[in-house]
Design a protein around this nucleic acid. Structure first.
Lengths: 245, 245
DNA sequence: CGCCGTTTTGAGCCTAGTCAATGTACGTGG
DNA sequence: CCACGTACATTGACTAGGCTCAAAACGGCG
């Protein structure tokens, strides 16, 4: 169920199967879900990556900008938005994190952006204090961290191109294709976990423009907007790719 | 002369003093400067970080998007722009790299963006093939790499906020303050190495808007535009910071 | 001195933002 | 089961900030 990517992290996350996904190790700010049989099992110090399963409900904050960076996280299920705010409330969503993605590793002591669950989310958390050891002792883990960080950077650079130089239609086309790749099962339909406001704040647009552009795409037959508004069928990927520039 | 930052990289770069900066180890695409006495000295396998000094002239490409990522680089002097292009030529400059900065490390086999020298640049190049070994064997080097990568990511996230959510004046104010911090000696005057076009493509604006905004700032007494157009005095940092949001 | 790249300035336009109203889905409680 | 409230989404009319096109000024260099 959890797609860990090609460099997929198996060892630490394997304990978090579909059935056990609800096990929660209580962390200060984590939502407490119904305790499972495993919930209070003492922390057997298994060697190597010992992740702490956690769960968060819709809108819940994993960490805020400026918070002490005690943990970093790998998404097990659900979607997370990481964002920054301007003093007057304008928001920029830097990234959406889907299963397999790693987030919250910092060079300094503090988190440099905020992260919230979109819908229900399960993650595996790792203590920052162990990062050094893990990187030192576990070459595979080190690779995963390095690769994940570099992939984040690649994504960020791609996204800067979008934010700085693409028009509304190009932004939406890029977004739809990217999401299609990242979270569609049949490669045709995608169930967006986020609201229009999230999309707008990710693409540097307004909700109105997002909505209008989607309607326009639908009228032009590029996509099919399914009733609920959150499901989208990509009818004409070729045309979308052409818009993508 | 070379500021290596707080986690500054000393060992490897120390061989690249002002006087020896012109030593070039010939690399496929590197400009050949007049060969120094050291130019063809056999590669004594000194242990640990063995950097290869290189130099590039104005506008020269260190690497292009899609090129094989044989090397990564640490800037010794000068400034480098890294950018991406859209099919129709629109350009987004993701970052300006100043002395001490590391660039060009990739998760995959290829560079994901292009990098060009602005003015004359000297760098220390490292073979990608050695990256694994260096990271494995040299904890200090590993830290520098990790930290540099994470700092790039932080910068990228900050810049996405700018690109997606700030207005022209806020963008310019942020840019000026940032550059002021990164490359001013007296913390009052800064000598910009890049053209208006570079600034525009970095901030997601046009040259005209950059120029107009600077003129506006100058008229308002926030900055002083020195004759050549490339030197700027920051008269009223407080006001700039307020614009920065 | 004259050319060329860069920068500045101006006039008009266009894309996306703002403001506002309506529509739709869903959950709660009468 | 339906009325209502809330949150999210859509659509429309108008505005504005930044872009385009165009021309002139500036500065460096051969």
């Amino acid at each position: 169920m959890v797609d860990l990517g090609s460099e997929g992290y198996q060892a630490g996350i394997s304990s978090l199967s579909e059935d056990t996904a609800m096990q929660i190790r209580t962390a200060a700010h984590a939502t407490r879900f119904p305790t499972s049989p495993f919930a209070s099992r003492p922390d057997k110090a298994e060697k190597a990556p010992a992740g702490i399963p956690m769960a968060f409900g819709p809108g819940e904050e994993l960490f805020g900008e400026g918070d002490e960076a005690d943990f970093f996280y790998q998404v097990a299920s659900g979607a997370i938005r990481s964002y920054k705010l301007l003093s007057d409330g304008r928001r920029q969503i830097d990234a959406f994190h889907l299963p397999g993605d790693i987030l919250g590793i910092e060079a300094g002591e503090e988190h440099r952006f905020s992260a919230e669950a979109i819908g229900n989310v399960t993650v595996v958390a790792y203590r920052r204090s162990r990062l050094g050891t893990l990187i030192q002792d576990d070459p595979a883990f080190r690779d995963r961290i390095m690769t994940a960080t570099l992939r984040s950077l690649e994504r960020a650079y791609d996204h800067m191109l979008l934010l700085g130089r693409k028009g509304a239609q190009e932004k939406m086309a890029t977004f739809l294709l990217d999401m299609g790749q990242r979270l569609s099962k049949d490669d045709e339909t995608l169930e967006l976990p986020m609201t229009r406001a999230d999309i707008a704040d990710h693409l540097g647009l307004t909700i109105e423009t997002v909505s209008r552009t989607l309607s326009h795409f639908a009228r032009s037959g590029l996509i099919r907007l399914l009733p609920a508004g959150r499901s989208i069928g990509l009818c004409n990927k070729l045309a979308l790719r052409k818009l993508d520039a």
